[in-house]
């Protein structure tokens, strides 16, 4: 049974509005990092995504132009955003290959953003430089949605992860979340810590020493009263207490010592027999692409949920686009443009 999400009270909303009053209207509608969002706002966006899951095809964004600027290629994220825009009736412009942009001629990011702002109602951007989306949100006269800025933030991935956790567990509160694999460089797991701290989670970090959760994130947990346990072993007993098993890929290129990589690479592979002691509600998530870290025979197991998770990216991104364009949950609920 799903828990009820309480709609943010007017009082809380006014408080939220007050603290962001010093931001420009576009800056506050932009999505740069999930850390900017309160618990209420995250719950609000989950409710909006639920509406889109029920009815993904609408004319809600008819007449709007969405620009997708991918200064760094990312097929999966771009297709998901463009599908979200298309299924809501918006038209999409943009580029998927940075080689075709004026950036190669020496144009600044500011100039590109200002130019595209003349044409589009909203800009979805992925950039290889960290902080690019924050900067764009400060200068652009239209809202910016961050589709990844280097190793820094990837809030739409986090939003779809949260939506999936909510969808499978019926709540975001008091969950045991196990993060496995590359916890040092994986921005999805770092964003997860930032987002989940509103919901009293217990984290388990399972990684080789070389890719352990960095100290600054463990410090973040301690400062915010988030419980965490670290493991280097990965077996049926360790994961038996998980509600969510969030797998990531151990990437060869991250290791300076390739002998070390060879030694640890197969220690973090999830095999079917390791699920024997799993809780019935446990779901396996993965931001994809996977290589071999989840055995293919698990795909048909009821614990596997990574393909559904990827599909949720559509609904989460539909909610993010609408929210950034100033469309409220109430308007989505009363929408008569459902196809």
């Amino acid at each position: 049974m799903r828990a009820t999400i309480v709609y943010p009270s007017k009082k809380k909303y006014l408080w939220h509005a007050k603290i962001i009053m010093n931001l420009s209207d576009m800056e506050k509608r932009s999505l740069v990092t999930i850390a900017d969002h309160s618990r209420e706002k995250i719950e609000y966006l989950i409710q909006m995504a639920q509406e889109f899951e029920k009815h993904p095809n609408r004319h809600l964004l008819e007449g709007k132009v969405v620009a997708t600027l991918f200064f760094e290629p990312s097929t999966r994220t771009r297709l998901s955003f463009e599908t979200a825009a298309n299924r809501l009736g918006a038209r999409v412009i943009g580029f998927a290959d940075p080689k075709v942009t004026s950036g190669t001629k020496g144009e600044t990011l500011k100039d590109t953003i200002m130019m595209v702002s003349n044409y589009a109602d909203i800009i979805v951007m992925r950039h290889y430089l960290e902080g690019a989306a924050r900067y764009a949100s400060e200068i652009a006269p239209v809202p910016i949605v961050n589709a990844g800025d280097g190793a820094n933030q990837h809030p739409s991935q986090t939003m779809l992860d949260l939506y999936t956790i909510y969808q499978t567990q019926g709540t975001l509160d008091n969950l045991d979340i196990f993060l496995v694999g590359d916890l040092k460089y994986g921005r999805t797991v770092h964003s997860m810590l930032n987002a989940m701290y509103h919901f009293n989670p217990t984290f388990h970090f399972i990684a080789p020493e070389e890719l352990a959760m960095p100290e600054m994130y463990k410090q973040f947990c301690r400062q915010h009263g988030i419980r965490y346990v670290e493991h280097t072993d990965f077996n049926a007993d360790v994961i038996s207490g998980a509600d969510i098993l969030y797998m990531t890929r151990v990437q060869r290129e991250r290791f300076t010592d390739l002998m070390e990589y060879e030694r640890v690479k197969d220690r973090y592979l999830l095999k079917l027999d390791m699920l024997s002691k799993a809780r019935p509600n446990m779901k396996i998530l993965h931001p994809l692409p996977r290589v071999n870290e989840i055995e293919y025979s698990i795909d048909d197991n009821p614990h596997a949920y990574y393909f559904e998770q990827a599909r949720n990216g559509l609904y989460a991104r539909q909610a993010l686009l609408c929210d950034a364009l100033g469309i409220t949950l109430d308007e989505v609920r009363k929408d008569k443009s459902i196809i």
């Binding site: 990011l109 500011k110 924050r134 280097g150």
Partner: peptide
């Protein structure tokens, strides 16, 4: 790889605990 080192713009830091600074853009 911070945007401030690659774009003609001002840097921006926040003071945080322990006499440290956090980049407003790349954290």
């Amino acid at each position: 790889k911070c945007i401030t080192n690659n774009e003609p713009m001002h840097t921006h830091f926040h003071t945080i605990e322990g006499q440290r600074l956090r980049c407003h853009y790349c954290n």
